[in-house]
Design a protein around this nucleic acid. Structure first.
Lengths: 205, 205
DNA sequence: TATTATACTGTATATTTTTACAGTATATAA
DNA sequence: TTATATACTGTAAAAATATACAGTATAATA
């Protein structure tokens, strides 16, 4: 994503603030009024630059036809865009920007429980549970899990998706593939962090 | 807060859906297009009623100057609640109300292609493709399919989901389970209707 | 030094859009 | 039966708005 100039950032912020305040984007004239421009073409020129750099899209010929594509402050976007976590870089939080490979427009309430992100499945360890490589598993961030849940656990700074079983200090992370072994963790000697549990999955055909 | 009529609810939902999709509210003409009105004054009349009842506010004289004051949350929204088709009654259209067992809040754009409804998988005929019983397969209504697509076909008034293969007048509907047989149809003697193709699936855990 | 990019002002035209007025039809309430 | 509310169609005018063209000034880059 290309860098914005100082004025372009101001224009983008103006659009975002106006949209949050009113529920609809500003016109060129309104941007002028907010930023002290005397000419609507000043606004038009900046908007075109923002469009070119991928921060907004413009529905040509439509009044107020400005959509925020990339906000410069947070990931707050119009409608729910759930992050898809691919490879998790060592030492980084799961939802760090660098781990998000894309976003998918969908409703966090589409499964029986709400969820926070998708985790992209790598490998075949869960295939006998009908979870294939590249499936996107919907994860709800929680540590409140029980035996039998499909959970996301961070172990030695690696993130893994397995069935959860815990008795006293013994944690077992159980795959669903007879060719894989259960991971056994003695919590007296090793740390493991439950980051969330699965509430569903999606797969593109 | 006053009760809305059925049409007023539809108009409000239309505004909300449009706003979520595009980032800006619709014009009167766009509301007409979505809801099948022929006159912009129909939209205007409903918007004024919604304003009067406190659901929206209108910035007079501004294009798209509609702000949502009170969202209707439990109301069915256009485009956001995808129907789940369970058993299809003989002789009825797939999307007949009687075949819809529930609706799921989700974005029709969450897969690589948009889709129209979910079809609930019955049986194990596709399990080797990772499609399990009770999975919800996202179906795009189309007859434009090619060999290898996973399609919904109506055959002798039964709806089935299989891989598609056609050569001349020979249609093969191929399962993904070695315990099931390919269905072969001679289109000179028997009718089969392609209703749609799969673009993805979801599964609740 | 020349060229390009950025950041405007100014103006104008075409199109979009709002909104008002007039009408019909149906349903509901008094 | 009458009045009111709801739900439109149809039309039109005024205002809003996008966007293109022409120009100037300054900064950055080659």
């Amino acid at each position: 994503m290309k860098e914005l100039t100082k004025q372009q950032s101001k224009v983008l912020a103006c659009v975002e603030v106006y949209l949050n305040k009113t529920g609809f984007p500003p016109t060129r004239a309104e941007i002028c009024k907010e930023l002290g421009f005397k000419s609507p073409n000043a606004a038009e020129m900046h908007l075109r630059a923002l469009e070119k750099k991928g921060y907004i899209s413009i529905q040509s010929g439509s009044s107020r036809g400005i959509s925020i594509v990339k906000s410069q402050q947070s990931f707050e976007q119009i409608g729910d865009q759930m992050p898809v976590i691919g490879l998790v870089a060592a030492g980084s939080p799961t939802l760090a920007e660098e781990n998000i490979e894309k976003r998918i427009p969908c409703d966090p309430n589409m499964f029986s429980d709400t969820f926070d992100y998708f985790l992209k499945v790598k490998g075949l360890s869960m295939i006998e549970a009908g979870i294939h490589e590249d499936d996107l598993v919907a994860i709800k961030k929680t540590t409140d899990v029980k035996n039998g849940d499909l959970v996301v656990v961070r172990l030695e700074d690696e993130v893994t998706l397995k069935y959860f079983k815990k008795a006293d200090h013994n944690l077992e992370l159980i795959p669903a593939n007879k060719d894989f072994s259960t991971i056994k963790v003695d919590l007296r000697e090793q740390e493991a962090f439950v980051e969330g549990k699965s509430v569903g999955l999606i797969r593109t055909h």
